[in-house]
Amino acid sequence: MIHNSPVSCKKYSPEPVASALPPDGPVYPSRAGTMGMWIFLTSLAILFAASMVGYLVVRSRFEQWPPEGMPPLPAGLWASTIVIMLSSLSIQIAYHCVRADKQGGLIATMLITTLLGVVFLFTQGLNWAWLIAINEKVNSGLYMSTFYLLTALHALHVIGGLIYLGYVTARSFTGTYHSAFHPGVKYAVMYWHFLGVVWLVMFVMIFLI
């Protein structure tokens, strides 16, 4: 659908105007697309920031956190953190591969990233299962409910990201992406790093402090 000749694929055209007439603009990923993605991520960042502020407000009303008699959060959160950091690393390698036209490397790293995303969800599920096993559920007080809600909010975005990663991975098998045309890869990289950063902040706020 989108055609791209190597001649027209300057990274940034000095005159975005005429060339940016959609949907046949010649530069992909275009400035417009990248900018749109940044705005989208800004919007999502506000969503997570608001949820963290809400969490801090709730937490500030308690004298002690975790509240008396409540167990610490599962140490398996460390595993989740390591997994999602590794996936960020692998998708960054995928980005380098596509820009260097290394198709094999792109496919391999996209597969690894997708797999690590699934593993992340699995470890998060284990953390939940561990809590449920000791009978700490979503309605067992604010300490538990904020944990479940925040991790669920993040996990939902990871699921959305995995669907997109799967799509991009499938398309990289057919050789869709190369150094001059890789909008899907770039958007996936931006989104996936974003989820990693959100998780790090969340991990620090709910677990480390």
Binding site: T42, S43, L44, I46, L47, A50, V138, N139, L142, L149
Partner: peptide, 24 residues
């Protein structure tokens, strides 16, 4: 772009409150 996500989280919390009695 900057304000609507806050509505989104508010409404999600309200739905969670009604569904799971989380108590926020």
């Amino acid at each position: 772009v900057l304000a609507t996500p806050v509505l989104a989280i508010t409404l999600l919390l309200l739905i969670a409150e009604r569904t799971f009695q989380v108590g926020i």
